[in-house]
Design a binder for these strands. Structure first.
Lengths: 204, 204
DNA sequence: TAGATTGTTAATCGATTAACAATC
DNA sequence: TAGATTGTTAATCGATTAACAATC
């Protein structure tokens, strides 16, 4: 299985959205239809799909059920990954309630926060725990992935603590760049950057 | 001014985060330091910075204040852009409360929702209005940019209505691909895709 | 001075597009 | 049959990296 680039992953995810919602009433879809919805080149769409091991049909395009399953397989929707959320503020809460997360293989187990008013509460059926319990939980249930959704001012400090607890993967929703040892990976969910990209290609 | 690619915008935004938080106690920073924090090639960093019109200094790197201002200028942080948020659920609310948005030139004016319990309330000082008032507001204050944060099941329907109201730019936070006329631009904030990217490069 | 670091060129690498034969 | 659409090759385009002279 060849490595699959982030750009391709991004497109495959969008194709999946089309199959799940936009084209849910059709049985087939052509590379032209997909390309048109996303403003892509049709050859590119066919190449991406070929990568998933799906064969199309002349004059008919691709069967939606097949393609949808193939993308789910390729991207691993069914191999669930467990994560903790650090920060039970608005964003952390929104992520925990994000309806479709579970469908895509993201299992949020619990939230962590320092705020005594929040500790002990439940969000969408998940407990909010004291941050100081993180070390114990990482060790006990061996979950080393966290979503970081704290205020940017404390992001580094919380990260240092999380790394000390044994966390290895950080999905960073704060607008900060984190200093971590080489053994820890940070993924930047750069909302501000998308806004800049959007602004740059708009006029009004 | 040459067009600046989305990849470069993304990196410049991350450099800005470094200058604002990670390196806030330094006066200078080298391309090596930035490259190291983000796992990038140092030549690439220097090229990006050159694009902002900033000159570095041998042995000292770049002056943080200069570089920060140059990035803000290049990306247009100060040219504020006004947007409406459609959907006053968890995600919409979290976005409206997103502390630093305003610093980056995003001005959220109001929220729109269909839920009578929410209409009339305030979120972070912004009014929640009935969705049916969108047409009037778009016409009256000439704001044609919206952030879409509704459940995926109704995303297309709400989009059709928004387009009818005159909306031209949609920053789509729902996991859907939208059918829109060619005159309307959709930006996909693909949270699920980042998760897939993250999963693909991790083991545990 | 020696070392650090820039700015920039040329080389490389990877991603996208164009084109088209195959065929349903 | 004629038209639509795939799968794939070769050509193009764009982005990244390597290398290094310049110089503080």
């Amino acid at each position: 299985m060849t490595a699959i680039s982030n750009k391709i992953i991004n497109r495959l995810t969008l194709y999946h959205c089309i199959l799940k919602y936009t084209a849910k009433d059709q049985t087939n879809i052509s590379s032209f239809e997909i390309a048109d919805l996303l403003n892509l080149n049709d050859s590119l769409v066919r190449k991406d799909i070929a990568l998933c091991g799906v064969l199309g049909h002349k004059k008919q395009g691709y069967f939606i059920d097949d393609l949808k399953k193939a993308i789910e397989q390729k991207l691993g929707f069914t191999e669930h990954k467990e994560v903790f959320v650090i920060g039970a503020g608005n964003l952390g809460t929104a992520l925990v309630k994000y309806a479709d997360f579970k469908d895509y293989g993201i299992d949020i187990l619990a939230l962590f926060d320092n705020n005594v008013d929040k500790i002990g509460q439940e969000v969408n059926g998940k407990r909010v725990l004291a941050l100081k319990k993180l070390e114990d939980l990482v060790a006990r249930i061996n979950v080393k992935n966290v979503i970081l959704a704290v205020p940017p001012q404390v992001a580094q400090e919380v990260t240092d603590y999380a790394v000390k607890c044994g966390v290895r993967f950080i999905w960073n929703f704060t607008p900060t760049v984190l200093k971590v040892p080489k053994s820890v990976t940070v993924y930047y969910e750069n909302i501000v950057s998308s806004f800049m990209q959007m602004r740059n290609s708009t006029i009004s």
